[in-house]
Amino acid sequence: MEQNIAQATEQSVAPESHDLEQTRPRPVFRPVADIFETRRGVTLVLEMPGVRAEGVEVTLEKRVLTIRGRSSVARPDSYRRIYAEYGEGDYERSFSLSEDIDAENIEATCKHGVLTLDLPKAQEAKPRQINVRAA
């Protein structure tokens, strides 16, 4: 069942499921993501333009990995928006992980508005030999 690692069953982030109410009056977007698995582990790559490293919050609770990004884009008052193809706001997305992730050694890097999370596989996930004793 190695393939099922972080098969990334996505959490439905329904607004009512949030314990904390958002205090910033801005929209929250679901960041576009790439997830791929290698022999070493699983890598998540999320696009969060406008978010710098300090604005990223990654939490892992009960195997639910939640990524939040706070945009630091500021526009001077003298500018008036006259045309828009994208909205500015924060980002949030959650994934359920399988058990065999080494939660202690998750590494996160943020560059050019893209967050990369490296989730190494846990040692215990490797196949174990079970000795069967003759009765």
Binding site: Y79, R81, I82, K111, H112, V114
Partner: peptide, 20 residues
């Protein structure tokens, strides 16, 4: 994707280019 912003005698364009 681009947004356009108007100033007095200027215009600003912002574009999202994540990972570029």
């Amino acid at each position: 994707a681009v947004n356009l912003w108007a100033g007095a005698d200027s215009v600003a364009i912002t574009a999202e280019l994540p990972g570029v």
